[in-house]
Amino acid sequence: MFEARLLKSSILKKVLEAIKDLLTQATFDCDDNGIQLQAMDNSHVALVSLLLRADGFDKYRCDRNVTMGMNLGSMTKILKCAGDKDTVTMKAQDNADTVTFVFESPNQEKVSDYEMKLMNLDLEHLGIPETEYSCTIRMPSAEFARMCRDLSQFGESIVISCTKEGVKFSTSGDIGSANIKLAQTASIDKEDEAVIIEMDEPVTLTFACQYLNYFTKATSLSPQVQLSMSADVPLVVEYRIPDIGHIRYYLAPKIEE
């Protein structure tokens, strides 16, 4: 038996919003520790790694490991039926071929359940080694979303260059070029609004704008985003979801031809 209850369905709605442009289907792996998902987009350029820890749920029970292959389009349709203030419970029997979503309004006057067929997905998993990154940049997630949106008007790629002076995001295209430089926040009063740059080695890497824009669909999950970079390895864009886990996106860089 698997059962996981969240007081706020909005977290699950936002998680889905954050992955559905990249993935059409994905496997949710549930065990004692919580729910994990790892999946690549069709072109194998980006990878989503989601963790929702058991202790972040209002109620969590998982007697046996459960693997649930879900069509994310269908899951999106179902979650649209939940009110933002509804609680949501996901339930599945051991070895079941369906999952049930139960939505309850705050006063319990409305209870709805939606059963969805599961899929047998044979998706490739990648082993991601623990990595010490040369540069990590923390910044307000809304600022990162704004930059990606602004720069993607000019070109298809964004060059991210992190040096001891700060971090620079650049692009160029038919109409011209654009650069945004961010320096570390001088005095940190509010941590959520700070830009914090840690750099051991300077790094410059180039990434496709389109994917960065997909990642920013996670903005509402967290006030801050962290970018981790090292030379010649994928970028990690991490949104920490308060009290429950994180969503990480890995993006392969563009390389010299």
């Binding site: 690549m40 350029v45 990648l126 496709a208 392969a252």
Partner: peptide, 14 residues
Amino acid sequence: KGKQATLMNFFKKK
């Protein structure tokens, strides 16, 4: 501009 790499250029399949 560079060529788009894939994740398999960096990570091994499990």
